[in-house]
Amino acid sequence: MSFGIPFFPQEASSEASQVDALFYTLLAFSAVLGLALTGLVVGYAVKYRVGSPADRTGQRSRNMWLEMSWTIASLIIAFIFFGWGATLFVRRDHPPADALEITGLGKQWMWEFRQPGGQREINELHVPVGKPVVVSLAAQDVIHSFFVPAFRIKQDAVPGRTTHIWFIATEPGHYHLFCAQYCGTQHSEMGGWVTVMAPEQYAAWLNSQGEGETLAASGEKLFRVLGCSGCHGASSKVRAPALEGIFGRPVALENQQTVIADERYLRDSILIPKKEIAAGYEPVMPSFDGLIDEGELQMLLAYLKSLSPQPSAGTKP
């Protein structure tokens, strides 16, 4: 920018230009109103200074019509900005169905990502240009926040739950990735780079990283290592619910209630199995709380999700 002084951040996602349109409209509105008020106050201060010859007759300390009109005008303007901001915001909950799903794990003090093909990255994230990307976020220890200024997006990663953020990168390049939620000693060093590449280059990059194991594949291994398959497998002696296609399906519970098997349900069922017991089964499953970490939990969830035909998990709020 001018003389190397940054005035405006780069715009590198489909979201960025839309957020900026609202931002600059607000900026223009604020500048006009702020400067008008400043002009008014300065103007009055000069015109009506002590000893000035200005006309002071007909002064009133109340003007109902004026007060009503500025109240109503403020309301209308406020509601316009509210509606605009909210419309852009609710799209956060609705990622496109064909989005690339990347998992992100925040821990003190680094970001760990795993590409759909299983390639792992630390404090680096490679994404293709022009393709929707969903990042499912989890946190190992404290709250972190995934923030890419050039994309105008931010989402906290909260321990004990999975959150999502999605974007479509539009400009190839190298962009800052920050942790925006204060997370302890090295908070300001927790970050890195998001690299946006043309699809061919992205594909080439993925290949150069080697055919890593996908998250779901690691999850499947873990599923066997931890002994889950011993009960949930097709040929097991212990009667446990089959997990094929479970994700996104309603599950009848012992207490006559029904829940949708979303990420929250699966997470709780692994860590706190006695909380919601599927109807018709004995509450015999042990808790894996403390035995697996947040990263391993992400693998198991990815594996369970991969057993379902649904294309994407990002639609769950």
Binding site: I272, K274, I277, P283, S287
Partner: peptide
């Protein structure tokens, strides 16, 4: 105070 929590019943965490 780190006393052991002994509880016979479903869902001891909660």
């Amino acid at each position: 105070l780190g006393l052991p929590f002994r509880y016979e019943g479903p869902d001891p965490v909660h």
